[in-house]
Computed example of a mutant assay.
Amino acid sequence: MTPTHLPGRVAIPALPTVLDAFNIAPADEARKLLLTCLRSLRWADRVTAHRPYPDAPALLAASDEAAYDLTPADLSEALAGETLTALPDETYDIAHMALDAAHAAYEAKFGHAFVICLEGLSTGEALDHVLAAIRSRLTNDPEEERVIAAEELRRLAKARLVDALRGAGNCATSHNKPAPGTQQHTPPH
């Protein structure tokens, strides 16, 4: 039998996307990826359980919904896994000292690392934004700060998921390295 000639173009199947891979990954692999974006087991389980997602906006909406539903215990778990916000390497030592003091005061008052999403800010704007935000948030009472920290975690999770969907690596981090969407602050020596 001879092959028939097909007029026109031949359809080439699309390559799988990062979202496709996430949708078909075993649940434990999907959960592991999600935990690098937000360290809440309940959040990761909820987002994993609702797969497959038809598109990235649906995944991001599910991420937001699950983040809005974090209990105080879930929020504490997620905050415990966060690292300090980093400064650009070229930042002056005096700024590092000011930020270290602000972080120490924040952790003493609230019992967890200061979290903030720096999505959309240039490195030059990051220092001023972080210092202004931490100083402002130090005036909050613990419940008010918990609400703000939860919103920042939701924004961080979303930014990290977007990075992962863009293929900007596997969104993998450790407690010693910053997660995508944030930077790690290294004190001066």
Rank of each mutant, 00 (worst) to 15 (best):
L33A: 15
K32N: 10
A66W: 06
L35C: 08
A105W: 01
N23A: 08
L84N: 06
V47D: 04
A62T: 09
T85W: 00
R46P: 00
L99N: 03
D93R: 13
R42K: 12
A95R: 09
A104I: 01
K32R: 15
A30P: 12
L87R: 05
A30R: 08
A108M: 02
A80T: 03
T83C: 02
A104E: 10
I24T: 15
D100C: 01
I24W: 03
D45Y: 01
D74Y: 09
R42D: 14
A67G: 15
A49M: 05
L59E: 06
A56R: 11
A73I: 06
L79F: 06
T71F: 02
A62P: 03
Y92I: 07
P26K: 09
E77I: 06
L34M: 11
V47A: 05
A67I: 01
T85I: 15
A25E: 13
Y106W: 09
D69S: 14
A78P: 04
P26Y: 08
R46M: 10
T71G: 02
P52A: 06
A61L: 07
L38Y: 02
P57I: 12
A108W: 00
L75F: 11
M97G: 02
A58T: 14
A27D: 15
A66G: 10
H103L: 11
R46H: 10
H103T: 02
L99K: 05
Y53A: 05
R39W: 02
T91V: 11
G81F: 04
L35H: 07
R46Q: 14
D64M: 01
A102L: 11
D93Y: 03
A104D: 12
H50W: 04
Y68F: 07
N23H: 07
A27Q: 12
L38V: 06
P88Q: 02
A98T: 08
A108Q: 10
T91L: 04
L59N: 03
P72H: 14
S63C: 11
Y68R: 15
A73H: 09
A108S: 09
E29D: 15
L33G: 10
L79D: 05
L38T: 01
A104Q: 12
E82V: 04
S40K: 06
A104W: 00
A30K: 09
R51D: 08
L33P: 00
L75H: 08
L79S: 09
A108R: 09
E29Y: 04
R51W: 08
L99Q: 13
D69N: 13
A105P: 03
Y92E: 13
E107Q: 12
M97K: 10
A27T: 12
